[in-house]
Design a protein around this nucleic acid. Structure first.
Lengths: 225, 225
DNA sequence: GTCTGTTTTAAACATACGTTTGAAGCCAAT
DNA sequence: ATTGGCTTCAAACGTATGTTTAAAACAGAC
């Protein structure tokens, strides 16, 4: 609560509403009324709705990318001249995400959902903003992946990275809903940490799959182009 | 052009625009002007924008689910009393999708993107519509997956299916863009069929991953809850 | 206490949206 | 030629959006 800082109250409300409903589906009036501030406050403090969206991402992503860079530094150092393994790389990313200081109990899952939305909901301005602001740690992650999977051809690696991104972004972007469904069906509670721990082995196994299965089973009508 | 059927022209334009920009970000005015029909035509022929969205999905999904049911029938028959394997099940789905008669060269990739959007862009009405209309083949697919992965716990299977859906929907939904990137970087051409053939082994491997990796590598600070 | 710059407020603005209306157009059957 | 049922059309409706305005409230410095 503190001294009722308007800017933070707006960011908190926006973060939550964006995650629940998406960007275009969330109006400034929803945000300001949830934040209990005047409608004009958003344009006064941020300039525009798009700038507010950027600010929501920056508030999480700036400290996160710093944490991630540090984790990669440590990892590479501890490996000496050997490149880190695939598992180590994926875990470094996962831990950096999970261990981020969280504003509230929902914390990380809200942000995962936002990242997923950023990817799927093709808001040009957001894509450009993220690329420009946080392209470096992303490229570094890509370089680590390349070193960790030397057995893959460039084309194979390219596609499998897309598959990984997809599984992650998609799952995280609806993780709340998915968790609720599972909760209702089986009574099992699932934390974001647990999802991540299930996701990593899945991704690692897929990434390292033998492509002997590339040939369809006999009788299949799909032909190799 | 045939006899300039307004309904089809609207469906074509809507399908393409929805896939490009999402549902809320596509206005009826964009659709009708792309389709070169009057604005009121949508409400006249479909009743509402939501009903138009449903119609776009139904036009593809109805024949597809019929094809898929047939493919599952054949598969189960050819297997006798043995349940189909994971690979067979995934291939049956893939082939049904790939072999659908396509209206144009983009065909399937447009529709994959729409399916991805339907999942992420949480449009309540769409979710309800799809569940109600096409829940049966989906449940059947789930049952086949369950029979093909008896070694997995229900919870593991649940999450891994989500990961599969994610990798698929995400990759396919942006496959055009991804293909172009790869084309520019390496000069390699990739068809949707080829993507599918790379995807299936990835999914199968992830699905069947040993979960011994569930324990983080030593030195990790992530604890099992 | 007055002044100065910042923040908040209520109101309005301009624009875009989905939807509705009622007249006009069309085309086959009478 | 006239009727009757679809279909198209231009125009308008009501509502919601992001943004701007100008006055009011506030805070700290002098």
């Amino acid at each position: 609560m503190a001294q009722s800082d308007t800017v933070d109250r707006i960011l908190d409300a926006a973060e939550e509403l964006f995650a629940e409903r998406g960007f275009s589906e969330t109006s400034l009036r929803m945000i300001t009324s949830k934040a209990k501030v005047n409608l004009a406050a958003v344009n006064y403090h941020f300039g525009s709705k798009n700038a507010l969206i950027h600010a929501v991402f920056a508030r999480f992503l700036t400290p996160f990318s710093a944490t991630l860079e540090k984790a990669f530094d440590e990892l590479e150092e501890s490996c000496g001249d050997q490149p880190p393994t695939l598992n180590q790389t994926l875990w470094a990313l996962t831990e950096s995400a999970v261990r981020m200081p969280q504003r509230n109990e929902k914390g990380i899952s809200i942000f995962m959902r936002l990242l997923g939305l950023a990817y799927t909901q093709s808001q040009g301005h957001l894509r450009k903003f993220l690329e420009q602001e946080y392209g470096d740690p992303f490229s570094r992650f890509m370089r680590l992946l390349k070193a960790a999977t030397p057995q893959l051809s460039a084309v194979d690696r390219y596609w499998r990275i897309q598959f990984m991104l997809g599984a992650t972004a998609f799952t995280m972007s609806s993780s709340d809903a998915l968790r609720d469904i599972l909760q209702n069906k089986t009574g099992v509670e699932t934390s974001v940490q647990e999802i991540a721990m299930r996701l990593v082995p899945f991704l690692a196994a897929g990434m390292q799959a033998e492509d002997t299965m590339l040939v369809p089973p006999k009788g299949s009508k799909v032909s190799v182009a």
